[in-house]
Simulated assay, not measured.
Amino acid sequence: MSTRESGAGGRMFAVRLGVDRGLREFRHTLGSPDQLFNVFTTIGFMLVLWFQRDTAVEGTGLALAAFTLPSMLGMGVAFSGLVGPAGQLSTNREDGTLLRAKAVPNGMVGYLVARLVQLALDGGFSLVVLLVPAALLVDVFGHTGVGGVLGLLAVLVLGALATLPWGAVAGSITKSPGGAMGITMLPMMGVAAISGIFYPITALPGWLQALGQVFPVYWIGLGARSALLPDAAAAAEIGGTWRTPAVIAVLATWAVVGFLLAPTILRRMARRESGADMERRRQAALQRGGV
């Protein structure tokens, strides 16, 4: 067998191991205390929808909750895509998982595949947990058919691609899980507030509308609304249209730039990993925990 074939076979084996590991880690997370976060988040979103169910959006004939639900789905994808990989990468650097992956042939390939599989399943599970009870409060699927559902899936997948590499970048440049959360979670909350998630963006001042459109959160939410809501609902959007070509173009740009940038940063981060660095981070984590 040639070296090239052996290398290709080794990478495929690493991919299979990565898929298996991602599936096993996802099953493990289902029983972890972290799932309480999904429960509390879902309860919070249900309360928002409950209070919005009788408030109509002018010019559309729809309840505000009908606009908020697809926006929440988009926001969930953006949060999972950015915060998830940032937290995991920084944690895996601290506990030595990344260093062990680096030490074996094609270990980084298997590691990255495992992370992608787990994050995709985590994100899908979180969306289902939100969508099932929310559909009982808001009849968004009554306005769409199979095409709308497929459109929603396409937008959510594109939204995940637009945010995942940036989450990996954030996890690569921070030195601790707390730092990763600090540069992802807090900014994302601010971005969500100006992205038309909980109220049409047209109600905001013009400069905030312009700022909100810079980030992918707004475009994921807009794409989700266009998939699930009737055409009349576009009256509440900027320009009175869904701007589907712009949704695709902006999210694709974020995805392409992210996937061009992230591998380089990840490789540099992996090359710098050493046992001494891992031990320093471990000691710092023990001190933060008061051990």
Results as ranks from 00 to 15, higher is better:
S2K: 03
T3S: 12
G7L: 12
A8F: 03
R11H: 10
M12A: 14
F13M: 05
R21D: 14
R21M: 13
R21E: 06
G22Y: 00
N38Y: 05
V39E: 05
G44K: 10
L49M: 02
W50Q: 14
F51H: 09
G59T: 07
A63T: 09
A65E: 09
A66T: 14
F67G: 02
T68N: 13
L69E: 06
S71V: 07
L73T: 07
L73V: 06
M75I: 01
G76M: 02
G76T: 11
V77W: 02
F79I: 08
S80G: 14
S80D: 15
L82N: 06
T91M: 10
T91Y: 13
T91W: 14
R93P: 11
R93V: 03
E94D: 13
E94M: 13
G96N: 05
L98Y: 07
L98G: 14
R100W: 08
R100V: 10
A101C: 14
V109G: 04
Y111D: 13
Y111L: 09
L116Q: 05
V132T: 12
L137R: 12
T144E: 15
T144I: 15
G145C: 11
G151P: 08
G151F: 00
L153W: 08
V157T: 10
L158G: 12
L161N: 03
L161W: 06
A162G: 06
A162Q: 12
L164H: 09
A168K: 00
A168S: 10
V169A: 04
A170Y: 07
S172Y: 07
S176K: 11
A180T: 08
P187G: 03
G190S: 06
V191A: 02
I194M: 11
S195E: 09
S195Q: 05
S195N: 04
T202M: 11
L204M: 13
G206H: 14
G206M: 12
L208K: 03
V214P: 11
F215Y: 12
G223V: 01
D231Q: 12
A232T: 13
A233P: 00
A234P: 14
A234G: 12
A235Y: 02
A236I: 00
G240F: 02
W242M: 04
A246W: 15
A252R: 00
W254M: 13
A255R: 02
F259Q: 02
L260P: 04
L261Q: 03
L261F: 11
P263I: 01
T264L: 15
T264F: 15
R268A: 10
M269G: 05
E273Q: 10
R281E: 04
A284P: 00
L286W: 00
Q287L: 11
R288L: 11
R288D: 07
V291P: 00
